[in-house]
């Protein structure tokens, strides 16, 4: 991850962090404000305004006083839907990344600590997991997730969280495994071992504190990737089902209907929101890295 904003000099580093915080804060605030905006405009995220939001030929409106970002092909408010879509992005992205971090750290610790065949086994298993096709697995899981009554067996949001976490824990695990391996024979661990500490104690007291700042940075690196993954799944129709808005299915809708030609905000709205959410998280991760993990930040 190149860290364009952490230029040499302390001032620039602080700026990256605060800029990332402000941007991410804005995105979160926008997502939180979705119901408020819906209340003020009187437009729910799935409400269809047939007379004011669509013309007779079913063409959407461009931005106007009633619809600040215009309407979509069903006469729904694009602004309200973008805000709700951002909410879904965060509702899926945050827990998926956190879950991946927890699972990845645990497995990485065990893998990094064990020697011989145990380490080999974990190593190979991670290689296999990385080689697994993400989209294909997601598509098949989404098909299996439909019960006999046609309704999903588990909520689609939860499935998306699990699928994304299932594919992103590996990156955490590899990171943690590498650090743990380098630490397990180092002076800190040896000293603890000599003083009679148990393995869990060593991992908890000596290894984890070294790892934590690195995985915190990596969490913010992985978050934007996972937000995009949610959008990808919804774009392909295996994520969030319509009429619930998500940035991915809004982009898919705009593209499929071709209506973005008359109402560019159908594409610009969700596209910009996705960009801001990802950019905010990226800049935040860059800033965090310079603050918490300055050595590797300088190395890049």
């Amino acid at each position: 991850m190149s860290d364009t904003l952490s230029l040499p000099g302390r001032r620039a580093r602080i700026d990256a962090l605060s800029f990332g915080l402000i941007l991410s804060g804005l995105v979160v605030a926008a997502a939180l404000a979705a119901p408020l905006v819906a209340w003020v405009t009187g437009h729910g995220p799935t409400d269809q305004f047939r007379t004011t939001g669509l013309d007779q030929m079913g063409l959407p409106m461009r931005p106007n006083a009633e619809f600040l970002l215009g309407s979509d092909g069903f006469g729904r408010d694009v602004l309200v839907r973008v805000l709700y879509g951002t909410r879904i992005s965060l509702i899926v992205g945050l827990p998926a990344t956190t879950l991946a971090m927890l699972v990845g750290t645990l497995i990485g610790l065990v893998a990094g600590w064990s020697r011989g065949w145990g380490d080999q086994l974990f190593g190979r298993f991670m290689d296999v997991m990385i080689a697994f096709p993400f989209i294909l697995t997601a598509l098949s899981l989404a098909t299996i997730n439909r019960g006999a009554d046609g309704q999903p067996r588990i909520p689609p949001e939860a499935l998306v969280v699990l699928v994304i976490a299932g594919f992103s824990w590996i990156y955490f695990a590899r990171l943690v495994r590498g650090i743990t391996r380098s630490l397990r024979d180092g002076p800190l661990v040896n000293a603890a071992r000599v003083s009679g500490a148990s393995v869990p104690q060593i991992l908890w007291r000596e290894v984890l504190p070294v790892i934590l700042p690195k995985i915190a940075v990596f969490w913010s690196v992985q978050l934007p990737a996972n937000i995009v993954a949610e959008a990808t799944l919804s774009f392909l129709g295996v994520g969030i089902n319509p009429p619930t808005p998500s940035l991915g299915n809004m982009i898919a809708d705009a593209q499929r209907s071709g209506l973005y030609q008359v109402q560019p905000w159908l594409l610009l709205g969700p596209g910009l929101a996705l960009f801001l959410a990802v950019a905010g998280a990226n800049i935040l991760s860059a800033g965090l890295r310079s603050r918490l993990d300055p050595h590797s930040a300088l190395r890049v």
Partner: peptide
């Protein structure tokens, strides 16, 4: 054809 295209031709 897509709605926008129909509108354009019309």
């Amino acid at each position: 054809p897509p709605r926008a295209t129909i509108a354009k031709y019309l």
